[in-house]
Design a protein around this nucleic acid. Structure first.
Lengths: 390, 390
DNA sequence: TTAAGTTAGTTAAAATAACTAACAAAGTAT
DNA sequence: ATACTTTGTTAGTTATTTTAACTAACTTAA
């Protein structure tokens, strides 16, 4: 955000205008004349800035467009091949990585399993190997990479680049960002996995074209990523979206520092415990909600009731979020994906009785690619600008 | 907020720098040299902009300061008398108005009672009379006024200047802003009363020096005003902070379009209903919570239990807000003022068991002046800039 | 074919607003 | 007195945008 009392100069304006032009070209191909109209800059100014960026390789002339009654326009394109970025996510015991162009399109992917328990050293080594693989696969040189975004389960402090808690990577209370940067020789952005998924859905998934959205994720815990007016909102202590701590459901046994009330009742571990008393057997490695839905269809006793309660309490959480934030869009992800459009419709109907304005509600659309897409975009969103996050 | 893909020019820079200088001078007196240091502009640039603003009457030279080892500095001051603004709030059947200088300091006040039931015409007439009074009292000319901020109970759409619902003013579904503007010949800002109070506390009260805060208000309903990074956050449908709709408490009888669950259980009407079964008599016109607190001290049976439940459920609401937003500060206002610092401390202790980060929590500090202060600042915050609200 | 009108993009000059360098004025420290 | 500091101004430079006028290239329609 533009801070209060901030000052600027012509360089700042130029940077802004270059970004304005690139912003347009990121949407679609355009001529200089189109750019002048969209950006409200004069045509000479657009020409000068475009020429500059063509020289830098950021923009390409890609051919002549159709005439609109006069000279044919020269179409310009954002040169998405000019640089590359790497995204990485740690999920359980696996690392998944991808190299993407400036548009966020994945050019190569890589996956590996880390031996458990993992140490920080092994995790970094994993990134190092993956990076090398991706570079040779794509014939990219490391100097052409803008940076790497790393998504981690656990509690991250993006501003300082540290992690307070992340058992599966063996990193705890460490300045991970700086360490990876030093080892890989690349600028690194870290963030927790839910935030990365939110970013992915925002740029490429269910949240494209929206500017204020909340991504609610139910997994081992419950969390949310929040984007307000196109900017990721992290809160004053980087604890925004910690909706697992909402007071939804019975609050008998929450202990300080432990899980929150909402998630201790309605996230995977709690669902698992209750499901195991209803289902004859539970499959490992398959979504517990999915299994419940199947059994409900088969009429297994008590399962429909359990699902109803889950849906209802998740809807309570959603109602609370909406009441506070009034977002344009609410994305449901993680285990909530398995409630399908039908379950979403049920929740929409409840909400219309509870809150005055129900936002658009959608299931996450990127599946297991959301995290990696977000990691990629966490690097892209600060290029060519500086900090894009509040 | 600076939008994505926005462009600028040198005029924009100049405006920014003028604002930067004024921002500094709003904090305290300074010399041109001080301003150059603070704003990181060059001294000639500061001199030029300052001279311009001196000519416009926005800044005054107010005397020579102490030397710091060289030439004595000429101290500059924001000329808070250059223009005036008017704030107005409708509270029940009364209009309260004030004329303030550019610092937000009230120079004159006015109060009147509107005959009930009121019509829109009578409400505007009230504003007209009040305005004239204030102008003659202060010897201000109307041309020196920047505008008027009007706070109303009910549901307002600030962006369009309309009101959907406001029984006490006789305005319903009307483009009130434009109507008042036309009648008074002044730029008008409208907003609901809780938002105005939030603005007041932010600029002059408990929220001074904070940039991300939530003001929770308990009255006939329950609502909240939200400021994120110094900007009022209204939500996608101007329904942010409608926390009366949170799913806190029994949800037996909420009907669509009606009160929300939280407020139907724990706002004044509900408290009143329950208190009337416990207290021997209830005084009209006195805070119901205050009366409960007095009776609890006297040991009236069941009262302490009722208060405990109230505090606890309000704290649930607070926990939900914190979980979602992680604000820097949470302000408690309206009926919550009567729980005193002791009640706040109780809530703080509960919260520390429920959520990972407890923000600063304070009682509102402006009392019944918050609304009018906010109305005044709703005009001031867009001077000399344009729209300061997201 | 040709004239008229439109659209795309460039060039040149003017305007704006920042910056640097140099200096004067007015003080303090020794 | 002399040297040094701080404040503020003046003069001139630099960077960037805008305006206006121009060339180029195309469409439309007589």
């Amino acid at each position: 955000m533009r801070g209060r009392g901030q000052t600027g100069n012509t360089k700042y304006v130029k940077q802004m205008n270059r970004e304005g032009i690139l912003f347009q070209l990121k949407q679609k191909q355009m001529s200089r004349a189109d750019l002048a109209k969209e950006t409200e800059l004069s045509r000479p100014c657009v020409s000068a800035l475009v020429d500059e960026m063509i020289n830098e390789g950021l923009i390409c002339e890609v051919g002549i467009g159709a005439s609109k009654g006069g000279r044919k326009p020269m179409l310009l394109e954002y040169n998405t091949q000019a640089f590359g970025v790497v995204g990485a996510v740690f999920e359980g015991s696996t690392i998944r990585m991808a190299l993407a162009d400036l548009k966020g399109e994945l050019l190569a992917q890589y996956e590996a399993t880390l031996p458990q328990p993992t140490s920080g050293e092994m995790a970094i080594k994993g990134l190092e190997i993956g990076l090398e693989q991706l570079l040779t696969q794509t014939h990219y040189d490391k100097s052409r990479l803008l940076g790497m975004g790393v998504g981690l389960p656990g509690v991250t402090q993006k501003r300082s680049g540290t992690i307070s808690y992340s058992p599966s990577t063996g990193w705890m209370g460490l300045p991970v960002q700086q360490e990876i940067e030093a080892r890989l020789g690349l600028p690194v952005t870290i963030d927790n996995d839910v935030n990365m998924m939110t970013l992915g859905e925002y740029y490429q998934g269910a949240g494209k074209e929206m500017s204020t959205l909340v991504n609610m994720y139910v997994g081992t815990g419950i969390g949310a990523g929040i984007i307000i007016n196109g900017q990721f909102y992290r809160g004053s202590h980087e604890a925004s979206g910690e909706i697992g701590y909402m007071m939804v459901g019975p609050s008998n046994n929450p202990r300080p520092g432990d899980y929150g009330v909402f998630e201790s009742n309605y996230a995977v571990p709690a669902i698992y415990a209750r499901a195991s008393q209803l289902l004859p057997s539970i499959q490992e490695g398959v979504s517990i909600v999915e299994q419940l839905v199947v059994h409900a269809q088969q009429g297994t006793e008590g399962v429909q009731e359990l699902l109803d309660e889950l849906y209802r309490k998740w809807a309570y959480g959603i109602a609370n979020i909406i009441s506070v934030l009034d977002p344009e869009l609410l994305i449901l992800s993680g285990e909530m994906l398995y409630i399908k459009e039908q379950g979403v419709q049920t929740i929409r109907e409840w909400l219309s009785n509870w809150v005055p304005v129900v936002p658009v509600i959608r299931l996450a659309s990127l599946g297991d690619q959301a995290g990696i897409a977000g990691a990629v975009h966490s690097v892209l969103e600060s290029f060519p600008n500086k900090s894009a996050t509040i």
